[in-house]
Amino acid sequence: MTEIKKFPIPSAEQENIEESLGLVWHCREKGICEKEAVSSSLEKSVNPLAYGKLIQKGLTQESGSHLDLTARGEELAKGVIRRHRLAERLLSDVLSLDKNAIDPNACQLEHIISMEVTESICTLLGHPVECPHGSSIPPGDCCKREQKQLDPIVVSVDKMSAGDEGKIAYLRLQAHPELHKLLSLGLVPGTIIHLHQTYPTFVLELGETQLAMEEDVARNIYVRKGKK
């Protein structure tokens, strides 16, 4: 499905194209599709020629006042966004990099990670669906297969078994309006939790607080597993 990336090191032109595709995707997520708006952000963030380049390469096309991704452009853009956001997750959750260092490094990584590495990272992180900023990560083939050969470091609570312990890596607060309650109940990143049971409902213990929750709440809590 996902187009195979050329390796090893992409040329500056390829990098610019990937950068531009990522930006178009990002604009679309924010609901911006107008030609003028897209072209001006491309001009600002990449270079003045980027807009024309995309069309020339057949990655985007103008339709009326809008700029759309072509099927091929869509495929490539999805890959770039996926690699960028997975890289962010890796840098923040596993490598615990400083906040300011995450974005520039992710920008570099997105151009050089191969598909195999992308899938490994994705599996390692437990097939995350959101980047640390809450934007969604397009799923890859590995997510569909839910590969589990690599024991993931960060897992969602619903995949843990009773008796497991771990430290909360992040919560997917955007997934559910009620999840904000978790924060005020003390379930915040960095908290050490103990999963007491998984049936009939999940019961988590954090310090002196015991919380019972259903699977669809537990699914949105990601934990870096510790020793048993």
């Binding site: 559910h176 009620e178 309650k181 978790l182 109940l185 409902t201 019961v203 002196e208 607080t209 015991q210 919380l211 019972a212 929750m213 259903e214 669809d216 709440v217």
Partner: peptide
């Protein structure tokens, strides 16, 4: 319906 989320007292 809303998801079950309840604090369990000791």
């Amino acid at each position: 319906r809303s998801s079950f989320l309840l604090e369990i007292p000791p």
